[in-house]
Design a protein around this nucleic acid. Structure first.
Lengths: 254, 254
DNA sequence: TGCACCAAGTGGCCTTACCATCTATCCTGT
DNA sequence: ACAGGATAGATGGTAAGGCCACTTGGTGCA
């Protein structure tokens, strides 16, 4: 009879990878708090019993994970960095960049994120966050009325404030990444009409409504506005079947 | 008078970093599709005009981002990988480990993703996807009743099928990443009672209800089940204020 | 006391080299 | 003619040694 034992994959273990794991574990377990220094490359090369290129490869990987930063000079050595959400955002971006994404998927994902973020922002925003959002809407209005070229920046700024007011930085980071991917996709596909002022003014009108819903803590309405705004703005670029699926997801059909 | 020109920081540019950027851009812009090969290290060393350790450091970084995989042998060379949730999940875990992310945020994010994925799966699942989900639920039930150790795998398999049935691969990738991070966190924090069969049976009961809601295309109910299941299962690990915010977000309070 | 200088150590990069492994090809045996 | 194994070449993994620019900390001079 065959044994029920299942074998695990026998992938080779590279020495640089084991160094990464050891140092990573040492940092995450608190042996090297933020701001502390690791031994220099030449010391590590002795401690691990490997050559310098090998420890350098390991340090590069840890560096790209945002855990370390090199520091030259006497009494130098790699220093442990404070955790930054940047790497998480970069992971989102590379994942979105390599995935062969179609517009429908990306739009759908952004509708999910923005809708939820708007609901959360309505529920748990603080006065300071509300003030920042109000200021951003005002800047959007000014930019649209002056037909200034920085409207896209002002638009993004407002949505960033909403993401932040959601109190969930994963939402903020992924929202930013998806926003960038969507922008890249559209920029590549079609040359937008940048001078069309009515579109800008319509955006201002919608975002003002979103802001007011958030202000009066009407989560359901805030989420609804955010979702339908995105759907209305982009649905014309989708195929007919994707449009129908989107409508159904938003609960308008049926 | 002083000029109004503002200078930008003059940070040093490392050559290995420029290689990373060039290769990353080439991959993300589609010049090297998934599965294609880059020139070998020795070739790249010639093309970039640098030494082999330097191109190796660059390749290591790209490798740790999940973009590449080395491939030895004649006609070898670094291979471009398909996007994987692994690196995103690792970023989540790193941020959790360094305490710049808390459990509440991650749970909230997973509730948003799983809820939306379940709604979408209810709307647009195909017969084949439904069969796969039914099969996965069945495997969960068998594993729970036999008290087998592979229950966690069966549980994950069911949720993977739901993510896939949502028709949105971004949802599937990020769902997978968050799931992995959450699992690691719990595994580390507390030694769960693996023999507690009632918990498994309860999970089976809930997921069966979710499956049936998806089967009858009841999107609202499917979303509700997915969200409340996650909240009920994990909320006891949250602080009291986070629990209240979660309840409010789910629309039960008020 | 202040400041310029200097020496030591650090990371950044290079050169050369060897090894295990994998792939493609060829060559042999059938 | 074909199947299969041996072989040769290229690849990535790792090592050793060395040079350079720069940062740092102390030292000695004004």
């Amino acid at each position: 009879m065959t044994s029920s034992h299942s074998f695990t994959a026998a992938s080779p273990v590279y020495t640089y990878q084991r160094i990464v794991e050891q140092i990573e574990h040492a940092i995450l377990s608190g042996d090297f708090p933020v701001g502390s220094q690791l031994p220099s490359e030449r010391d590590l090369m002795g401690q691990f019993g490997v050559s310098r290129p090998t420890v350098r490869e390991a340090l590069r990987v840890l560096q790209s994970m945002g855990l370390l930063e090199p520091r030259p000079g006497t009494r130098g050595g790699p220093v442990v960095l404070a955790p930054s959400p940047d790497t998480l955002g970069r992971s989102f971006r590379t994942m979105l960049g390599t995935a062969s994404l179609d517009l429908a998927e990306l739009l759908q994902y952004r509708i999910i994120l923005d809708g939820s973020a708007s609901e959360l922002a309505a529920i748990r925003h603080t006065d300071a966050e509300l003030a920042l959002m109000r200021e951003a809407v005002e800047r959007m209005r000014e930019s649209a009325e002056a037909d200034a070229p920085d409207f896209a920046d002002a638009d993004l700024a407002f949505h960033e404030r909403v993401w932040e007011a959601s109190g969930n930085q994963i939402l903020a980071l992924s929202g930013h990444a998806v926003w960038g991917a969507l922008r890249d996709l559209l920029q590549r596909d079609a040359e937008r009409s940048p001078g069309d002022n009515s579109v800008k003014l319509e955006s201002v009108r919608i975002d003002t409504g979103l802001f007011e819903a958030i202000e009066r803590r009407d989560a359901a309405e805030a989420g609804r506005i955010a979702r339908t705004a995105l759907a209305d703005r982009f649905s014309s670029m989708l195929s007919e079947s994707d449009q129908r699926a989107l409508e159904q997801f938003l609960g308008r059909a049926q």
